[in-house]
């Protein structure tokens, strides 16, 4: 599949009163048309900031994008999102790239009808008239599985349940037929049963509309049934990227191993202790000169304390940023 989004060496920092927060430190990845890429990592690993940076949604000040490229492809043409003016970015946001945020309760405006909140995007990007936007919005509500969409158009967010509100958010995200939908922890705030419905809804919409999805989460369990590829982030860097099955079967980064070990399993026969990763994530206020995972890593050796590992090819369609070769059980030579 052709690439639709390509991010190279993105660096984002926040200049706060406590010091400089090194939130994103040279992140690179690409997204293919129609695929689902999961970005996994713990809180503060830079997964949300990466996506917000690309679309100019980080609050600035204190946030500042220091360097990098983010190419959005349109056939053979590509444009760097980071070099676009605010006006150009506004065309992209909501038009070509839709967003779904974590908390559907606070992400919808409490004093506007949900119909209005969907329709305004249609008016803005597709230039529809009020009536056309209204009709299209009702179709969209139907598409995301909201019963009685005609009546619901005039309802306010507080008249919906959490799961229904998230469906509304999804309707907003897909309203203008985007090529990419970025879903930032879209199921985290929901009940488990509702989570499954939302995941299913995403999969169905992807099949019908063909958009690519970037699914940001800290929950590896959700990822397995959903993603094509997984990008694991740690300390504002990419630790590993791999097709989803390969990642589960054979993680190549010690952090991924830890993440998978920390996952509760219902199918294991012997009773097993939940393993947590020892130690704490790196303090992003301190710029690192070594692997950010070194002090939590049981495989760390002297090189890990001397330089920062870069993302290197490691097998078919996968890359890892680690000096230790888990497969062979010895340091990697390159």
């Amino acid at each position: 599949m052709p690439t639709i989004l390509e991010v190279n060496n993105l660096v984002t920092r926040f200049y706060t009163l406590d010091g400089v927060v090194h939130a994103v430190n040279g992140v690179s990845f690409h997204l293919e048309e129609g695929e689902t890429l999961a970005i996994v990592g713990e809180s503060g690993s830079g997964k949300s900031v990466t996506m917000m940076s690309i679309l100019g949604l980080i609050p600035s000040p204190p946030g500042k994008i220091e360097s990098g490229e983010a190419y959005l492809y349109d056939g053979y043409e590509r444009r760097d999102l980071l070099k676009m003016s605010d006006a150009e970015l506004r065309e992209i946001r909501g038009g070509q790239i839709g967003f779904v945020f974590q908390d559907p309760i606070s992400s919808l405006n409490p004093v506007l009808t949900i119909g209005e909140q969907i329709a305004e995007s249609l008016v803005r990007h597709l230039g529809l008239s009020r009536e056309e936007a209204r009709d299209r919005t009702i179709e969209l509500l139907d598409l995301v599985g909201i019963p009685d969409p005609k009546a619901r158009y005039r309802n306010y967010p507080h008249q919906f349940s959490g799961g229904m509100r998230q469906r509304v958010m999804i309707a907003i995200a897909i309203a203008c037929g985007p090529k990419i939908v970025i879903a930032d922890e879209p199921t985290t705030a929901l009940d488990v049963t509702i989570q499954a419905q939302i995941v299913e809804l995403f999969l169905r919409l992807q099949k019908e509309l063909g958009m690519a999805i970037i699914w940001i989460t800290h929950d590896l369990a959700v990822v397995s049934g959903l993603a094509d590829r997984v990008l694991v982030m740690y300390g504002g860097r990419v630790a590993e990227v791999a097709p989803v099955d390969d990642l589960y079967e054979q993680p190549r980064h010690p952090y991924t191993v830890g993440l998978l070990g920390a996952l509760p399993r219902l199918d294991s026969r012997e009773s097993r202790r939940l393993v947590s990763i020892q130690g704490a994530p790196p303090d992003l206020l301190i710029p690192l000169k070594h692997c950010p995972f070194a002090w939590r890593c049981e495989y760390a050796f002297d090189r890990c304390w001397e330089e920062i590992p870069t993302l290197q090819p490691a097998g078919l369609n996968r890359k890892v940023a680690c000096f230790y070769d888990l497969e062979r059980g010895k340091p990697r030579h390159d």
Binding site: L57, I92, G94, F101, D103, S121, M169, I172
Partner: peptide, 11 residues
């Protein structure tokens, strides 16, 4: 958060 949503719509 809903203002962030509004920005994400490109308004």
């Amino acid at each position: 958060d809903f203002i962030r949503t509004a920005y994400s719509k490109g308004l």
